[in-house]
Design a protein around this nucleic acid. Structure first.
Lengths: 359, 359
DNA sequence: GTTTATTGCACAATCGATCACGCATCAATG
DNA sequence: CATTGATGCGTGATCGATTGTGCAATAAAC
């Protein structure tokens, strides 16, 4: 290959000369930084690039290359710190081995555990995982998806995406299957927690723990628009109905997930309320942060008197007191479901898998 | 380009015919999934691939392409959901725009905040961030670095790496500069917290808060081998020395970071000790998790009686009680330092930047 | 009307790895 | 000695985007 001077062959001699000096200087400067390619190794081993490639990517037996040459090439590769150029490999093979995931945030145990488990399992399955967090920004979600497409991801996992179907529409024409995690979508298969059952049980638990009092209960956090919040509210209501209590609209504060919003919503509620609630269902650890802060500010003792159930787990939050119950979403099982769907490879049949959370 | 049949041109006619049918079937099946390329767009626009490329990557003015043709191409690209093939682009440009980071874990606020901030700033600087967590496994650290090299990263940030210098040795021959974050290395510039000063002040604080008692203090968590732990121990000792106390070896439990290890180490200490310590310096939130769990198990009241200083921050841990102090490492400032070093582009001069943590 | 400048674009080489073909060499068989 | 088969490896096209170069066509200048 690859005579870098070939297209200047017709230049006047003097010009050629200068150019050659320039090239040589550049080569000198690059000596230690330029990456070794299979062509370099081929030259060193006195063989061809195709052979080097076959040796290094493992199918040299198929190509009937001698053990001796193979070891020679491998040794040279080690010596020179050869690293495969993935871009070239991907371009030729038309298969990147990359699996992408978008996630709203890293800064709580649920999502960071998702990211970490995803990476581990993806690697175990032979993929190269790329995770990107989209800061709960719908625009960024799409941009991130587009970028992932540009990098030729083979799958895209949309975790807690605000509009997973739009991402699907972006990926489908490119032949890239998507999968929804945590929040379901209508156009691709989904793996989510069994929010209803989890919320139902959690509500039962806090109602039982607060049974000696009767000042009522509260649901804090989340967005009414999203599926998970809806299901959890349904579980919350039904657990009340079971013991003959009807939940009113005023008891539902779906104010968003952000901690400040939960804090603000709770504060206004408490100001208007005659008495503080006996039990609270908090829709995420992020919201819980706001709730506990808010209670602390208002009245140090208050926190210890309200029974709290939180749909999500955090080790320190769990240590906050005996009156606080947490359900932990089963990330391991959810991610296993994700990868078994990927391995199955059937992307036509849409499924929704609901994984029971751990109480 | 790119007649996909060209090298079968000499086959017998019948064979050619069958092959063509096969190709056509494949084309039909691919229709909706095959990615659009600049060649497709060129054909549709009645122009050349080079022109399409120039239009879409923005230097069409330099190439003197008419506004009219440019908009035509752009419209076609939109219609057909064209996505750039980054592998091809990178291969040709020999510049990936990818910036990599390895991080030990995601599951605590410090590292997850690092990952999140890194992504945000990398994107703002025009890079594509790839973050990978290496589970504190030295082997995986190297494998991850090698993989990143294969993906042609332009920089590699090593966060909390057990052996950043080995990663540097891997990257240097490939011309990829590295940078150490959180834990320093000897072969590349480093951005770290000012561990000594932070530990000194934190120790002062817990000693003052526990001053009415005299049962002594304890240092829990971390590894004596790593720089951060050494510096924090030094700060811990000096803050004691300042008020005339000498710290003995028995007071230092550098048992590793894992929560179970901290828990175990503390339990054995408490078993042998005459009295529990008045103050404890805990080296990370992970270790704190073990410490608090251990105290809880032993004696519910114990936790409220020991003054704890933790070198790291977590919102719920901070809410655990009034007797617990946390220093928060200044991730924003640290990451700004990282990116300003990258933008400077001077990788010869080795520097270590120490960022004061926030008390 | 010829020369020069400018505009607008096509062409083809190139990045590094992969893989379908095919060519040499040597041993074994008839 | 000719034929067949196996062994071992080189050749060249290819993936999609980028970019240096060159060639028309039109406009401007003389």
């Amino acid at each position: 290959m690859h005579n870098r001077l070939c297209y200047v062959a017709q230049l006047p001699t003097k010009c050629q000369y200068l150019l050659e000096i320039l090239m040589r200087m550049r080569a000198l400067a690059d000596q230690n930084t330029k990456k070794t390619t299979i062509y370099d190794l081929a030259q060193l081993a006195g063989t061809s690039a195709g052979t080097v490639s076959a040796v290094l990517n493992g199918n040299w037996k198929k190509r009937r290359i001698s053990e001796k040459l193979a070891t020679k090439v491998r040794n040279l590769a080690d010596e020179h710190g050869y690293a495969l150029n993935m871009q070239a490999s991907t371009l030729r093979k038309e298969k990147s081995g990359i699996i992408g995931m978008v996630v709203p945030m890293y800064d709580n145990r649920y999502f960071s555990s998702i990211a970490q488990t995803f990476e581990k399992m993806a690697r175990a399955a032979g993929y190269f995982p790329i995770v990107t967090c989209t800061q709960r920004d719908p625009e960024l979600e799409l941009t991130a998806a587009r970028t992932m497409l540009a990098y030729q991801v083979e799958y895209l996992i949309c975790t807690g995406a605000t509009d997973p179907d739009k991402i699907h529409d972006l990926c489908a024409p490119a032949g890239v299957p998507t999968l929804n995690l945590d929040l379901p979508g209508k156009k691709a298969s989904s793996v989510i927690s069994n929010n209803y059952a989890g919320a139902f049980k959690l509500t039962q638990k806090i109602l039982a723990a607060a049974s000696e009092r009767s000042q009522g209960s509260l649901f804090v956090g989340g967005r009414e628009a999203d599926h998970n919040t809806q299901e959890r509210i349904r579980g919350f209501r039904d657990a009340h109905a079971e013991i003959g209590i009807t939940v009113t609209e005023g008891q539902i504060l779906a104010c968003g997930y952000a901690s400040e919003k939960a804090s603000a919503a709770l504060s206004t509620f408490l100001k208007d309320a005659v008495e503080p609630p006996a039990a609270m269902f908090v829709n995420s650890t992020i919201s819980l942060e706001g709730v506990v802060t808010s209670l602390r500010e208002k009245d140090r003792a208050l926190q210890d008197n309200i029974v709290i159930g939180c749909f999500d787990w955090d080790p320190f939050a769990a240590l906050l007191g005996d009156h606080i119950f947490m359900v932990r979403q089963d990330v391991e099982t959810m991610m296993n479901a994700v990868f078994s769907m990927i391995n199955e490879g059937n992307h036509d049949e849409l499924r929704t898998i609901e994984v029971p959370p751990i109480l």
